[in-house]
Each structure stands twice: as structure tokens, then as C-alpha cells.
């Protein structure tokens, strides 16, 4: 059974026009119709440009934001509308690692208190006491347990991200949503944190929703990958299938734009022109059509269906690039 089932998830942010009378305008559809499932111990990578709704989706799954529509089922239980004590209990199972290792740690608390917060909030007495548990966690993520009383500013970016990971794994959750956990780190440090996340996953059979804009990092860590654009799903497939046979023109454009550390490599680059359209006023039909190199009239008229073209390989496109049958 899957650990997490997300069906038709939507998150709209209301807007208001500033006329004489305040009136609600068209909502911003930050996430619109996201559906996927996640098995225990599995990693789903979510990629897309900034503004595609990947972070909003991650936060909505954890109920840090209230979903506008759709359902979230965690461990066989509908958690879309739970609140109070039920929601607090959910947090034992589902945690988050944030992008900004500077903004996500309270500068006035020593890191021992930061990592102990989950125990305190959930009123859990770990065997051997909180301090012992925290020091074990610090050791686990590669921090010196003697630094228990130090403050976040005394740590480098990579170390702070380790603190964030220690806090997230404190209660042995089943799911962690990682929102760009390495994008603020130096290249040489990124690999340390990625390896740490992989090790912990193997030990605790953790599932990750790994949100990132770096396609190489996502390929490295994910079992399956979801590509989003303007709040909608474009393509969802197993890692190998997605990277070797991307079907959606947006996925192919994204991949061709990644700079590769190989000098003088000539390759086909699909240049996307222009910027992301406003999510408040998305294009008709297929939302990607305004930047799509192969768009036709049909794309403006009809929203492409979410179709499974190969087993476990789903695409929302009228003209997916399908492998030629020899």
C-alpha cells in the first residue's frame, strides 16, 4: 500500500482588486490538479521553474497550507481536513526540511533546543532522555554533539542544513518533504547533504518528496520524477524513463538547458523564449503552449489530457514524443 496518496490536489490563493469596493479577483492557481502516490522508502522528485507551484504543493501535502481541493491520504487515512490533535499527530509521521538554512532556524535558540523541539512539542520522552536523543541525532547527521549549546550563527550553511535534517528525523517520521534542501549550499557541500539524506533514507525506510530546480540533483536522488509547470503536472515517470525518454516538450527543454560540465560539447538546445506567464491569467488550453516550440491551434483550444502513454509514464501533452516502434 502506498504511504501517501495525493489526488487532484489544488491550492488557490485569492486575489483582490483594489477598486472602490474590494472585490475578489481571479484566484492564483498555484497548484492545480496534482495527483500522485508515494510508497514507503521511495523518493519522488518534483522539478520545475520558480513559480511552478512545486513548493506550494509540498507545503500543502503537509498541511502547512490548507488545500483548496483534492484529497491527501497518508498511511491509509484521509488527512485533507484533519485539525487540532489529529494534525499534530500527523506531524510525527510527516516532516519537512526547508531550503534556507539561515531562515529556518531560530537564531535565539541553541541548536540543542532546536533539535529537541519536536520532542517537546509532541510531548514525547525518548528513552535515555531528550538531551541524549538530541546528541545521538547530532552525531547521526555528522555534527559534533558537544556543540549542543551553540547557536545557529556559529555554523556554516552545510552544518545548518544538517541541523534541519536532525530536527526533521527526530521523531522517526515516515515522510519528509525536502524543499530545495541543497540549493543554498556550495557544490562541495551539496554532495555531503545528499549522501546524508540517502543514508538516513536507507536506514529508516523514509519516503521523500524532494523538491528542487536542479535536474542533475533530482536525477541523482529520485526514484520517480514529477515535472510541474504553472501549477499543473506536465510529466510523471520513473527516473530512467524520464531522463532517457522525456516525452513532454517542456521536460525536454528543461533538460537541454542544463549546463553540462563538459567543454565544447555540442548538443541540441531547445531554447524557451519568454518568461513564465502569470498564474493568475494562465493561457487557455495547455498552459505551456505560449513557450512551446511545437504548439498548434489545438493546444490553445483543448487542455491536454493526463494520459499514461507507457506503463508508469504519464504526460499532459497533445503531441508527446513517443518512442518509435521499429
Amino acid at each position: 500500500m502506498s504511504l501517501l496518496e495525493v489526488t487532484d490536489l489544488a491550492k488557490y490563493f485569492p486575489t483582490y482588486n483594489q477598486k472602490l469596493v474590494r472585490r475578489e479577483g481571479d484566484p492564483i492557481k498555484a497548484v492545480d490538479g496534482v495527483t500522485f502516490s508515494l510508497d514507503p522508502g521511495e523518493t519522488l522528485g518534483v522539478v520545475g521553474e520558480s513559480g511552478c507551484g512545486k513548493s506550494t504543493a509540498g507545503r500543502t501535502i503537509l498541511r502547512l497550507l490548507e488545500p483548496t481541493g483534492g484529497t491527501i491520504t497518508f498511511d491509509g487515512r484521509d488527512v485533507t481536513t484533519i485539525d487540532g490533535e489529529d494534525l499534530r499527530k500527523l506531524r510525527r509521521q510527516a516532516q519537512m526540511v526547508f531550503q534556507d538554512p539561515y531562515g529556518s532556524l531560530n537564531p535565539r535558540h541553541p541548536i540543542g533546543a532546536i533539535i529537541a523541539a519536536p520532542f517537546v512539542i509532541q510531548d514525547i520522552q525518548p528513552p535515555g532522555g531528550v538531551k541524549h536523543a538530541v546528541q545521538e541525532l547530532m552525531e547521526r547527521v555528522g555534527l559534533n554533539p558537544e556543540h549542543y549549546n551553540r547557536y545557529p550563527h556559529e555554523f556554516s550553511g552545510g552544518q545548518r542544513q544538517r541541523i534541519g535534517v536532525a530536527r526533521a528525523i527526530a521523531l522517526k517520521p515516515k515522510l519528509i518533504v525536502c524543499d530545495e534542501p541543497v540549493s543554498a549550499l556550495d557544490v562541495s557541500i551539496q554532495a555531503q547533504v545528499i549522501n546524508l539524506l540517502e543514508d538516513i533514507q536507507a536506514e529508516q525506510n523514509l519516503a521523500y518528496v524532494f523538491i528542487a530546480h536542479d535536474l542533475s540533483v533530482v536525477r541523482h536522488i529520485s526514484d520517480r520524477v514529477l515535472v510541474m509547470y504553472l501549477g499543473k503536472m506536465m510529466e510523471l515517470a520513473d527516473r530512467e524513463a524520464l531522463y532517457e525518454r522525456p516525452m513532454h516538450p517542456y521536460t525536454r527543454a528543461l533538460m537541454s538547458a542544463v549546463p553540462v560540465p563538459e567543454p565544447r560539447r555540442t548538443r541540441e538546445r531547445i531554447l524557451l523564449t519568454g518568461d513564465l506567464p502569470s498564474p493568475q491569467n494562465p493561457p487557455s488550453g495547455c498552459v505551456f503552449r505560449t513557450r512551446c516550440p511545437i504548439a498548434t491551434d489545438l493546444c490553445a483550444e483543448k487542455v491536454p489530457e493526463w494520459r499514461e502513454i507507457e506503463p508508469h509514464h504519464r504526460v499532459a501533452c497533445h503531441y508527446p514524443k513517443v518512442r518509435e516502434v521499429v
Binding site: 562541495s188 554532495a191 540517502e198 542533475s216 536525477r219 541523482h220 563538459e262
Partner: peptide, 25 residues
Amino acid sequence: WGLMTSMPRLDRDRQERLVPVAGNP
């Protein structure tokens, strides 16, 4: 070398494990 081995690369086969530079800047 450390920079190169710590970077996942799209143009090569996926490595099982990245080789980071130990320690901090």
C-alpha cells in the same frame, strides 16, 4: 577533483554515490 566528483551530472550515467569534499569551507 573534489568539485568534479561531488557534482551529479546529467551527461553521464547516474553514479550510485556522490563523492563529496569532506569538511567545511
